[in-house]
Design a protein around this nucleic acid. Sequence first.
DNA 1: CTGTTAGCGCGTTCAC
DNA 2: GTGAACGCGCTAACAG
Lengths: 336, 336
Amino acid sequence: MSATVTLAHVAREAGVSPSTVSRILNGTANVTPDKRARVEAVIRRLNFAPNVQAQALAAGRSFSVGVLTQDTSPYYGETLAGIERGLEGSPYHPLVVSGHWEAAREQEALDLLMRRRVDALIVLGGVIEDAALQAVAARVPLVAVGRDVSGLSERCVLVDNRAGIRLLVRHLTDLGHREIAFIGGPEVQQDALERRLAFEAALRECGLEPQAGLMRPGDYTEASGERAAEELCRSDLPFTALLCANDQMAFGARLTLYRLGIRVPQDISLTGFDDLFAARYATPPLTTVRQAIAELGQVAAEAVLRLLAGDHPQLPRYVPELIVRDSTGPAPLLSH
Amino acid sequence: MSATVTLAHVAREAGVSPSTVSRILNGTANVTPDKRARVEAVIRRLNFAPNVQAQALAAGRSFSVGVLTQDTSPYYGETLAGIERGLEGSPYHPLVVSGHWEAAREQEALDLLMRRRVDALIVLGGVIEDAALQAVAARVPLVAVGRDVSGLSERCVLVDNRAGIRLLVRHLTDLGHREIAFIGGPEVQQDALERRLAFEAALRECGLEPQAGLMRPGDYTEASGERAAEELCRSDLPFTALLCANDQMAFGARLTLYRLGIRVPQDISLTGFDDLFAARYATPPLTTVRQAIAELGQVAAEAVLRLLAGDHPQLPRYVPELIVRDSTGPAPLLSH
DNA sequence: CTGTTAGCGCGTTCAC
DNA sequence: GTGAACGCGCTAACAG
């Protein structure tokens, strides 16, 4: 059990003071070339690696940015990948904790991150009150993704859910669909509510009236999409298109349609929202709205770095893009 | 900018010594009820949260376990979810870093984790030399998943790739398939090599001879499966089943088959390996081998906790299970 | 039971 | 340019 090498060991071995070693490590001041060479040699020989905890304690910064995520769905997986990429090259590293869409657990996660003295925070969604986020934002730079935190709007990376849903509805009505069913997300979440409202509004814009019987609640999971689609198909209300509030539910719905022998898109057109990586590999490939999730994560990370550097970064507004694939087609004559 | 509250503040405010506060925090020793009550009140009032860095430095343990993962594929996503679950309830938290399947970056990741003084390590796959892992294993408890590290075999959570592949091949031959194509993984990875060898062996067991023309290399990504399937279909060698070394490549291959108008399973039977969450939602649902990935992660995490507690946990051996879904069916008369 | 004294490993003044 | 001394916030002997 080789005892850990410390900066002091290096100093002694190199015949210099600890401060000198520290200076070389951080480039804090000039050091004679030969001394520097000597120290660097010792560092390599002893395989010295500075204790980050000690550095953090002494310098007052931990070089870690806390990330409050929610679950392990592909959605957050892709966002985290973006964050990792955004932090790459910087001395900062992400410390990820899940809140599981429960205010209490989100608060615990935030507490944990604060106790670990993260230098900054990235918040992905969540249902915790804005006040709690404002509180932590008062202590460290904070950027939120997919959620508009009151009082911190200029620190939020958002997509325009309204516009995205409208693109889908337009696309479907252009194809001749008039009876469009809808599976929504958990409305405790901002975006889920926005998408449902946007769906109803877009329908009206197209001269159609939302029908309660064609709208089912889901919770953004595949299983809920599967179930909701079942209910919709069992009811006798006819529809030729099924718009799901996110891709995962569309995947679930796809399974139900497959089981019932309903063809996509010949019998029913199917759409999602998010453009998860998997959407392209669905059968048939899923028509959806691109959120560029990974990019959102990366942008958030970069914004955090700027904040940490004392900047006041301008967060870009993201406009969703319609991605037409094979899961949508002309409306059939209503028959099933 | 409310200055951070320290243990010393609490002590002063409560009229006790810092040690007493520390004792109450850690339950290190008995304290008079009234003193304890007084201190706890102050803690709540001041909203005191101990600095984990300082605790780590003083106590010599950081309460974090490092996780070396590789990429952000669903495979690792599910494993990480399992690890998180396994650590839940314990005072330990995961610190995740990606190695991107490059020895150099994996080494960097390990260095980073050691500098952060993680108390233990969980290694997911990777291509770094065993020696490097043995080196870190000498400093902290280490558990590896999906990789057999020489000298640390009793610390490795493994699945029997041979057995899994054999289940698939048997399943296919039982269905009458004789011409089975194969898309393999990157053979720098242990499991990919094992699976390819197992495929050839299983074929022979069934009295069939592996045909080089029906075997294509992939890299475990959807895109590589897509491409490899294209090549296979363009070649004039007939086959009635396509066995992919993992689910993701099967998803990619599925897209190619869809594009070419080849029906699954009527024209070609398709199989994967891993049983990712998404396998059940493929169209048609994918026949595959269950690895219980999330469980593997959880088991690894629990093993690490036991090691940290001084135990010598016995890691269970995982036997893969064949999951028959709709992507496989009787072999058609060769025609396409 | 509880306060006092030392560090944990490093960064950072401050003088030299 | 460089070393000595001090402090970051907390835990752990050590006495009492």
